[in-house]
Design a binder for these strands. Sequence first.
DNA 1: GGAGTTATGTACCACTTGATACAGAATAGG
DNA 2: CCTATTCTGTATCAAGTGGTACATAACTCC
Lengths: 195, 195
Amino acid sequence: MSSGRPRQFDVDQALDRALQVFWKKGYEGTSLLDLTEAMGINRPSLYAAFGNKKTLFLKAMDRYVQGPACHVGEALQEPTARQAVEYLLRHSIDLITDASNPCGCFMVQGALAVSDDADPVRQEMVRRRAMAEEAFCRRFTRAIAEGDLPPDTDPGDLARYVSTISHGLAVQAASGASRDELLRVAEIVLRSWPA
Amino acid sequence: MSSGRPRQFDVDQALDRALQVFWKKGYEGTSLLDLTEAMGINRPSLYAAFGNKKTLFLKAMDRYVQGPACHVGEALQEPTARQAVEYLLRHSIDLITDASNPCGCFMVQGALAVSDDADPVRQEMVRRRAMAEEAFCRRFTRAIAEGDLPPDTDPGDLARYVSTISHGLAVQAASGASRDELLRVAEIVLRSWPA
DNA sequence: GGAGTTATGTACCACTTGATACAGAATAGG
DNA sequence: CCTATTCTGTATCAAGTGGTACATAACTCC
């Protein structure tokens, strides 16, 4: 197999740039011109490497989950449920208020309310958010079995609660709340942790 | 003064219809065609009555605050801080999961992450969310003075906490969470209310 | 009934949108 | 060197965007 003319750009770096734009402007607020300018490539190269706008967005989503938002998975590995939540909240706050990224959470503001045309993208984001919540639900189920949460705890409700806090913090960050302000919110949450 | 040809549509009803569309699809996900179809009027009538897309959106925002979201102001009049928060959360949940409206909160998903062109609209939403938070801050300050909250409470932090919960619930609703599921989240919040 | 005023509806504007056709450039294998 | 393959860049596409000009219709006041 002959490999033809080599790419003149780094695919992952271009994807990171695309992620930044989608993160700041959302799926529908981002134009192809925004993308090609940020990625430093022209339109046909973008389409050849990433398919189209939708598939590029989905790939940016994967990269977000595995890169900037990898703390979500890491949190689950903390020894106790409380520590997992603490890890999640603190690192989430660091991410969503990090000055080198757009404010807020890509997973929340990337495609929250969109046109019918973009609805599949929105639904995929809903699905991914639900997956994270379910992972915490399973973690809490384990915590109950390990005696690390009260036995009458409903793990699903608690996971939904944590998810609610997390998404709320993201909206706060998108509204301009600072790291310290959000850390104090997290403190209120953790102070009353049911354990 | 002569009044000319009378309007053939009800301005407030048309505004309600516009609100519904913006609520579901967000500012940038909504096209003029979406609007005119939902409002039952044609383009020039829309522009004559509401200015342009941005000003229409802002007017829809006013209508949202004074109509569907009037419970926010009402909550402040409850006798205690705890009751105010309880009122806020319960009625918010009713609103954001009401089947006769789009899921979620217009004030959150109407314009969370948008293009530069729409950024003024986004900022106005940020400002309005901040105003609601400040109102709760003042309410909590009063509650502390009335001995209805611990004297060492920081009213700003507490207001930000409540705001975070409220916005988090909105994202959950936009993701398809049911009324009952969110009521159980609210229960967790209220169970640990610092009073 | 005529004059003045305001709303409606068609038809259109310039511009942007996401997406491609196609020619040329850069590589690998033979 | 030649061919096959892949990428790049220009130039372009049809469709959709927000926004308006203009003729006409419906009303009030004189």
